[in-house]
Design a protein around this nucleic acid. Structure first.
Length: 486
RNA sequence: GGCGACGUACCCAAGUGGCUAAGGGAGAGGUCUGCAAAACCUUUAUUCGCCGGUUCGAAUCCGGCCGUCGCCUCCA
């Protein structure tokens, strides 16, 4: 498949401007996104991040690129408090749940994928685990020691930021800034407070430990991403994504390690998504103001959540509230109704084809323009609703040829389902329970007779009672239809 | 204290120099309907936190002020 002609621009955090995307290898995109640390259920903030990058990957595929999408699972080395002290998050959770650390990892990795599957986030091509790449991390640490970028103290190995002059280029900080901004007094082992751990010595009570040339220990958090990205994508690759809060220090450290070890540029484009806020404050694990995806799915459908998130740009914050989510749900409902209308409209004599083709082409153009402009999904949604407004009267007139209808159906599906990942959830007449269908049909027939006899009281009673049980009845000019409440 | 964002209608949210400031929700009016719901149509910011400046022209650029937030500890 050839690449669609386009002019995709991406806001590169490294240069702080939008740049035309040029892949390292023609027709191929390598992308690495920081994955979750699996010590708890994912929340809506994770949903925003991974839905955003899901759409990025989907759009590249839509354009015809072969994409390799790598997203790590952090199951070791992520410490609880300041960068290089405190307990491992997984281990803390393991104590809490009285489980083996790897049971915790397994439980929340599954939970994460359950949630992502529900939200129609495509699985990464590779989901490498930090604990499965200990030899690679030891090897990289050795390389950095040999090249003089790192030093060992008492079984700990630290990266020396002074040896890597470009440290700070992503986050726009100088070593001076970092020094003056340090709020936490850090371990006395370090030569410079800004130095970060490549390898940590394991205390006797530390469970997750591996043998290394420096004694038993475990890898520093930043190291896994450097190792696994280069292993699967090469020392230099196209895109590195992640949450804005990881710009410093995590991504800064990744760059330093990788470029020092490989003497090659690391990721060429850095993409950072912004967060979900609640009353203007970041939704985060430590603040306790988060809503887990599982919780949100109790009262909202997966696509409502997805639609809500796509309604703001990935680099903008998105303020969460029940009102805002409800608003999104209604909009998504309307989009689906139109989808049904488009699917079910019978063809006609084709006299409106010209006008319809014109609004379809406009949609195509607006879609490409919006996505090419740093994946502007809110503008895509706006274009879709503009299209709905213009297309509806033409559909209702019924003078469109089958060929023209099909072409538009395909485009609409490509935009909404293939790229935005919004799959219809309306299941009108699609209840699989044959017996239940039959019973409902009988009840509706009964109600029709009452309506003919103008027994409005009974007719309305039946309608209300069915509604209470999630069966919605509507009397349309074409007859009574029913559907399950979504 | 350092680094960096943001402030657009009742809510969510696009727009970063120039036609009438997208879109969704909510509200209002209407078509349809026994009623309802759904759907559809119409409508709702002379104005973009405030004050100056640059410009023929600014929500959009510059300066100041006010406010909110993120990172500098773990966080998507």
């Amino acid at each position: 498949m050839s690449i669609k002609k386009n002019n995709l621009t991406i806001f590169n955090s490294l240069t702080r401007k939008k740049e035309v995307f040029e892949p390292l290898h023609p027709g191929f995109v390598g992308i690495y996104v920081c994955g979750p640390t699996v010590y708890g259920d994912s929340h809506l903030g994770h949903a925003k991040s991974y839905i955003s990058f899901d759409v990025v990957v989907r759009y590249f595929r839509y354009l015809g690129y072969k994409v390799r999408y790598v997203q790590n699972i952090t199951d070791v080395g992520h410490l609880q408090s300041d960068a290089d002290e405190g307990d491992d998050k997984i281990q803390v959770q393991a104590r809490l749940e009285r489980l083996e650390p790897m049971e915790v990892v397994e439980r929340y990795t599954r939970s994460y994928f359950e949630d992502m599957d529900a939200l129609n986030v495509l699985r990464p091509d590779i989901s490498p685990r930090a604990s499965g790449h200990i030899p690679e991390q030891i090897e990289m640490t050795q390389t950095l020691l040999e090249k003089g970028y790192a030093y060992e103290v008492n079984g700990n190995v630290y990266f020396s930021v002074e040896k890597y002059p470009a440290y700070g280029k992503l986050s726009g900080r100088s070593l001076e800034d970092i020094k003056s901004g340090t709020r936490v007094e850090v371990a006395g082992d370090k030569k410079n407070p800004a130095d970060f751990a490549l390898w940590k010595k394991a205390d006797p009570e530390h469970i997750m430990r591996w043998k290394s040339p420096w004694g038993e220990g475990y890898p520093g958090w930043h190291l896994e991403c450097s190792c696994m990205s280069s292993k699967y994508l090469g020392d230099t690759f196209d895109i590195h994504g992640g949450g804005m809060e990881n710009k410093f220090p995590h991504h800064e450290c990744e760059i330093a390690q990788s470029e020092a070890a490989h003497d090659k540029p690391f990721a060429r484009y850095w993409m950072h998504n912004n967060m979900i806020t609640v009353d203007g404050v970041k939704m985060g694990k430590s603040l306790g103001n988060f809503v887990t995806i599982k919780k949100a799915l109790q009262s909202h459908s997966p696509m409502e959540i997805r639609f809500f998130i796509l309604g703001s740009h990935y680099r903008s914050t998105l303020d969460f509230s029940e009102d805002a989510l409800h608003g999104a749900a209604r909009g998504w409902q309307r989009l689906q109704k139109f989808y049904q209308k488009l699917a079910n409209t019978p063809s006609g004599n084709g006299e409106d084809d010209k006008a319809f083709v014109s609004v379809t082409e406009q949609l195509q153009q607006q879609f490409t323009q919006a996505m090419d402009d740093d994946f502007n999904t809110p503008r895509v949604l706006a274009a879709l609703f503009d299209f709905i407004k213009q297309a509806t009267p033409l559909l209702e007139k019924g003078a469109l040829s089958e060929a023209v209808l099909d072409k538009t159906r395909l485009l609409f599906k490509e935009i909404t389902q293939d790229v935005l990942g919004l799959t219809p959830e309306l299941n009108e007449d699609s209840v699989s329970d044959v017996e239940l269908n039959a019973v409902i049909e009988v009840i509706i027939g009964l109600r029709q007779r009452m309506r003919r006899e103008k027994n409005w009281e009974m007719a309305d009673y039946i309608r209300d009672e069915l509604a209470r049980r999630g069966i919605i009845i509507r009397d349309t000019p074409e007859g009574t239809v029913w559907e399950r409440q979504v």
